[in-house]
């Protein structure tokens, strides 16, 4: 019951209506945004959405420390719990923590091989992830082969894999060149742009859907959850 409440503010729920059923297992999704717009928060929101549906999330980062990422989760969770007036918040929070694993690597250190090793360790100790988030991957420097391999891993795990991609500008007119060159490997691409008092999320690519106009959502700039109306 409470999970439904919480999900009411997840941007993904809304996107699922617009997107053809969300990202889908085995697929690669990316979120593109300028510096400081909140790509990390958005990924945390996506992860919580999965966690509250009893999924397992592996959050890989080359950008932040474990403590920093965890704080991020706690902030977004508390916001959700408060807006849903969650009664047994502590217990739900404990469950969420249990099903999430954070792994931090030095810059440029994550290869598909490393990720495979990590997934293996996770699977043997806590269980295989149903969603993998990759934060801080230098998309430009990542070869097509490696991206294809990340996608293959998504397929093997039947997991959704989300990546954040940094962009130098705030406004994103089209798929950045670093993504366009591997467009066929990416199923969903979303753009995050700062708006007046909200962050605007819109789709740059949605599977094979040619009409992207209806995907346009305003998000709270702090938590990247749907703004409250």
């Amino acid at each position: 019951m409470y999970r439904k409440f919480l999900n009411a503010r997840s941007p993904l729920r809304l996107l699922e209506k617009g997107l053809h059923g969300g990202l889908g297992p085995g697929n690669l999704g990316i979120v593109v945004g300028g510096p400081g717009v909140g790509k990390a928060s958005f990924l945390v929101g996506v992860a919580l959405d999965e966690l509250l549906r009893s999924g397992r999330v592996l959050h890989v980062s080359m950008a932040h420390t474990v403590a920093h990422i965890r704080d991020h989760y706690d902030t977004v969770f508390e916001e959700l719990a408060a807006s849903a007036r969650l009664e047994n918040g502590t217990q739900v929070h404990v469950d969420v923590d249990r099903n999430r694993s954070i792994r931090v690597y030095p810059k440029h250190a994550l290869t598909p091989e490393k990720l495979r090793e990590a997934v293996k360790v996770e699977s043997e100790t806590t269980g295989p992830p149903s969603m993998v988030l990759i934060e801080g991957l230098d998309f430009k420097e990542t070869s097509r082969e490696d991206l294809a391999d990340f996608k293959a891993l998504a397929g093997e795990l039947a997991a959704e894999v989300w990546m954040s991609v940094s962009y130098s500008k705030e406004q994103i007119a089209e798929l950045p060149a670093s993504v366009a060159r591997v467009e066929d490997l990416v199923s969903v691409a979303l753009a995050l742009e700062p708006g007046e008092d909200a962050v605007v999320l819109r789709a740059l690519k949605d599977h094979d859907n040619p009409d992207l106009t209806e995907l346009h959502v305003a998000l709270d700039p702090k938590t990247l959850l749907l703004t409250r109306h």
Binding site: H59, T65, V66, I69, R70, V94, D97, R98, S101, I102, R103, V104, Y105, P106, A109, A118, V121, T125, T126
Partner: peptide, 16 residues
């Protein structure tokens, strides 16, 4: 990780 799981532990994160 096994020593932690055996003790009802929750793994927060790993830094390599």
């Amino acid at each position: 990780l096994k020593t932690i799981m055996q003790r009802r532990g929750t793994v927060i994160g790993t830094t390599e």
